[in-house]
Simulated scan of single mutants.
Amino acid sequence: MKRDAATCGGCLVSAVGVVGAVWVWGASSRTQRHLGQDFEGNGMDLGAFFVELPLVVVGGAVVPGLVYALGAWLLAGRRRPEPARGSEFHA
């Protein structure tokens, strides 16, 4: 059950990362300028939309997910019990 909770947490962190990254990207003055929010719609550049937006979405999903996975891996490694020294199969 712990593994399912960790997977759900990683997916949730990635989803929040995507939403946050797209929101910050869309609210920036640079993006607004490239999408035509300048004087009378001059300077509209859809290349910013078609090139940058997919990169923002992928980066927003991957980076938080990797950080979460690294933290979960480090915490799981510290809590892992020590293996037994002897074994019943070795005499």
Rank of each mutant, 00 (worst) to 15 (best):
M1K: 12
M1H: 15
K2Q: 14
R3K: 12
D4I: 08
A5Y: 13
A5E: 13
A5R: 15
A6L: 10
T7N: 02
C8W: 15
C8M: 12
C8D: 05
C8Y: 14
G9H: 03
L12T: 14
L12N: 04
V13E: 06
S14Y: 07
S14L: 01
S14D: 09
A15E: 04
A15V: 09
V16Y: 13
V16R: 02
V18G: 03
G20C: 06
G20N: 02
A21S: 01
V22F: 13
V22N: 01
W23G: 01
W25E: 09
G26R: 05
G26E: 09
A27N: 11
S29P: 06
R30Y: 12
R30C: 03
T31Q: 01
T31E: 06
T31F: 05
H34Q: 08
H34D: 08
H34P: 01
H34V: 02
H34L: 08
L35P: 04
G36A: 09
Q37N: 13
Q37W: 15
D38L: 01
D38W: 15
F39P: 00
F39R: 00
E40K: 09
E40Y: 15
G41S: 12
G41Y: 13
G43F: 11
G43R: 01
G43M: 02
G43A: 01
M44G: 11
M44C: 12
M44Y: 11
D45G: 07
L46D: 11
L46M: 10
G47N: 14
G47E: 12
A48N: 06
A48W: 14
F49T: 04
V51D: 15
V51Q: 10
E52T: 07
E52I: 04
E52H: 14
P54E: 07
L55E: 15
L55S: 13
L55K: 13
V56F: 07
V57Q: 07
V57I: 14
V58W: 08
V58F: 15
V58C: 05
G59W: 02
G60W: 08
G60R: 00
V63K: 04
P64L: 03
G65C: 05
G65F: 13
G65L: 04
L66E: 09
L66Q: 03
V67A: 06
V67L: 08
V67E: 02
Y68Q: 02
Y68V: 00
A69F: 07
L70F: 09
A72C: 04
A72I: 00
A72K: 01
L74C: 06
L74S: 04
L75Q: 06
A76T: 08
G77M: 05
R78C: 11
R79W: 14
R79C: 08
P81M: 06
P81L: 12
E82W: 14
E82H: 05
A84P: 07
A84K: 11
A84Q: 13
A84N: 10
G86P: 00
S87G: 08
S87Q: 10
E88H: 15
F89Y: 14
H90N: 09
H90Y: 14
H90T: 10
H90W: 15
